[in-house]
């Protein structure tokens, strides 16, 4: 079983996930309400990508983790806990306390390159799929299989 996500404010980073071998998500633009950035960091290599949903590259992400990527890391730590993020991205924190800052430091120390795998479209469609869950109708017919998924007070 997986511990449920910790509650967090969604305005800045409406979506973050650990999937497809990446930490990836969607970050709201600070200036344009209709624009979002799709940001990602690959596990192991820490290669980063950041572009708008229309595939325009982010000006901040040149040789450096831009503010969108930093926000993504911060919110991933809130949602999943720093330890789970570190484990998923395969970050060796040595003796540092797991946190958003120590994660950024440890990853950036390896001089990661830009990720040209073009994951933005996939990530964005996963975000849309995620949003579509809000549109699904509830049912009062029983789902006996949910008995396998107990709630827990423990958080990620």
């Amino acid at each position: 079983m997986i511990a449920p996500a910790r509650p967090r404010k969604l305005a800045k980073v409406p979506f973050v996930e650990l999937a497809d071998g990446r930490m990836q998500g969607v970050v709201s633009s600070g200036s344009d309400i209709g624009r979002v950035y799709v940001s990602s960091i690959a596990a192991s290599t820490y290669a980063y990508g950041c572009s708008t949903n229309n595939n325009r590259p982010c000006g901040g992400a040149r040789g450096w983790y831009c503010n969108h990527i930093r926000a993504l890391i911060g919110e991933a730590v809130l949602q999943y806990g720093a330890e789970r993020v570190a484990r998923y991205l395969k970050v060796d924190l040595a003796d540092a306390e797991p946190s958003g800052d120590s994660l950024i430091d440890a990853m950036f120390a390896t001089r990661p390159g830009a990720d040209h795998s073009g994951a933005a479209a996939t990530v964005f469609s996963r975000f849309l799929r995620h949003l579509a869950y809000l549109e699904l109708a509830p049912t009062t017919a029983p789902l006996p299989e949910m008995q396998w998924f107990p709630p827990t007070r423990a958080v990620a």
């Binding site: 449920p4 996500a5 910790r6 509650p7 967090r8 969604l10 979506f15 996930e17 949602q79 995620h130 949003l131 869950y133 809000l134 699904l136 109708a137 509830p138 049912t139 009062t140 029983p142 789902l143 949910m146």
Partner: peptide
């Protein structure tokens, strides 16, 4: 008897949500 209700949800809807 039991009476239930279920719904799919985004993973960020938790707790009181």
């Amino acid at each position: 008897v039991r009476a239930g209700v279920s719904v799919p949800k985004p993973d960020t809807v938790v707790g009181a949500g």
